[in-house]
Nucleic acid binder design. Structure first.
Length: 433
RNA sequence: GGAGGGGUGCUAGAGUGGACGAAUAGGCCGGUCUUGAAAACCGGAGUCCUGGCAACGGGACCGUGGGUUCGAAUCCCACCCCCUCCGCCA
């Protein structure tokens, strides 16, 4: 209902501001269904009012031992009429939300105009990208040679786009998760959350994955659950259908989860290595703020993700997504791209977004101001999230940036306490190639 | 998976098919009293849709969805969730 009201009151403005982003939306159908609902709904309320009065009259008559047959007959007819109208309204509202849930978010005013990723402006760079003193190898070659990454056996037990990590590779992954959670928890003030890795359709709708992107999700065959594509889904939906106290805001969560993505439509892209997997680990930052805080919060959250890269001494740059590259639910997004020397490119390792009230409206996440007037309405919170960071891609960056001429990989200093003091990954030689 | 018991407001917890948007208690907010507080007393409070500048109206909401009825928190059906016991299990 929130969606419907918002849409009805801002219909033309939304349509106009969306511009090409709203190209898929059947605006005329929408307008028609909204009008229909607006026409029938008050009628229905009126009839219900009559029915209520009539029924009260029946009660009074019976109490006074008076005949009520005539009123009962009238009310029966009225009841039938009401049932018809209820069906009409139900169908209209169903159709309405079906259409309305496919409308993307409006870009924030500060989002740069553009059509493709090439139009994304670079905001800043950190670290140096001097070439190595020897030819840089891609991470899959490094990992397979060290026997910490095994794509062949992963294909045997699962399929394409899966990896097995073992030995110090598995330890590196685990060290990164712990390091990131500790950093965000202790230094940055986030509360750690470990949610279910499967959710229901309601949660997926709340954050915007459904109904439009069902083909990107893994679905269970016999139970009504989806595997989460990101911790954003379970963690944002933690407060679905809640009215929060103003004093609770901002709420900041850091959450490790595995993430599952079908990657339908990306055949042939990044087929080698760990870049694009069906399952990967990620530490996600999710925050809820008051509307006036969300712009600052996005900068802050992005900084927290950057802090991980800086601590690991991995070179990166920050780009702002242009209007054409912005995701469905986001109002504004910064991507963090880490330097990969083998390909000589920056690759996305974190995406930090402000969704403003888009998800809050869908998931009904509201708050009430404390000092407000008596009749103050509830307001929608703003939701944000960002990877802090994608763990598999961080392993990629470490393998490639910390590789040595002898094929070993130096462990970044901040991770050593998490790896029993080990400073270098070498081939342990225990597993047959 | 089997058997039984439950889901009511911020919480606990009542609720014979009609006076129930819902008793009562606690908590919360405002006030009186007090140097201040506590206690006591008085008062106030839900969410959503909708009409109206407003005052103030109308409607919906007792896990969810159907059904019976003039009328459902209350009766019937299905589903979901929670608790207890049994089975299975990391």
């Amino acid at each position: 209902m929130y969606e419907l009201k918002h849409l009805r009151q801002n219909f033309d403005q939304i349509r106009e501001q969306l511009g090409p982003r709203g190209a898929d939306v059947p605006w005329d159908d929408l307008r028609k269904v909204i009008a229909e609902r607006q026409e029938v709904s008050p009628k229905l309320d009126g009839l219900r009012h009559e029915l209520k009065k009539g029924s009260e009259q029946v009660a009074r008559l019976k109490r006074d031992k008076q005949p009520a047959d005539q009123v009962v007959a009238e009310m029966k007819a009225l009841g039938d009429r009401i049932k018809e109208l209820e069906e009409t309204v139900r169908v209209a509202e169903e159709r309405l939300s079906e259409l309305a849930l496919r409308i993307p978010n409006l870009p924030h005013a500060t989002v740069p105009a553009g059509r493709t990723p090439e139009d994304n402006p670079e905001l800043r760079r950190w670290g140096t990208t001097d070439p190595l003193s020897f030819p840089a190898k891609p991470h899959w070659e490094i990992g397979e040679a060290l026997r910490i990454l095994d794509f062949e056996r992963a294909a045997k037990i699962a399929g394409a786009r899966f990896a097995v990590m073992s030995g110090l590779g598995a330890q590196l992954e685990r060290a990164l998760v712990n390091f990131m959670l500790d950093l965000h928890g202790t230094q940055h003030g986030y509360r750690e959350v470990l949610p279910p890795f499967m959710v229901n359709a309601g949660a997926m709708t709340g954050t915007g994955q459904l109904p439009k992107f069902e083909e990107d999700l893994f679905v269970l065959r016999d139970d009504p659950y989806y595997l989460i594509p990101t911790a954003e889904v379970p963690v944002t939906n933690l407060h679905r259908e809640e009215i929060l106290d103003e004093a609770m805001l901002p709420i900041r969560y850091a959450s490790y989860t595995a993430c599952f993505r079908r990657e339908a439509g990306s055949y042939g892209k990044d087929t080698r290595g760990l870049i694009r997997q069906h399952q990967f680990n990620k530490v996600e930052l999710v925050t809820f703020t008051k509307p006036e805080q969300s712009a600052d919060e996005l900068e802050r959250l992005t900084g927290h993700a950057e802090a991980v890269l800086q601590a690991l001494k991995l070179p990166y740059r920050v780009v702002a997504l242009c209007t054409g590259d912005l995701g469905f639910a986001a109002a504004k997004t910064y991507d963090l791209e880490v330097w990969l020397p083998a390909q000589g490119v920056y690759r996305e390792i974190s995406s930090c977004s402000n969704f403003e009230a888009f998800q809050a409206r869908r998931a009904s996440i509201r708050f009430k101001r404390a000092g407000g007037k008596k009749d103050a309405k509830t307001e929608f919170v703003h939701t944000l999230n960002g990877s802090g960071l994608a763990v598999g891609r961080t392993v990629v960056a470490i393998l490639e940036n910390y590789q040595q001429v002898d094929g070993s990989v130096v462990v970044p200093e901040v991770l050593r306490p998490y790896m029993g003091g080990i400073g270098r990954i070498v081939d342990e030689g225990k597993i047959k190639k």
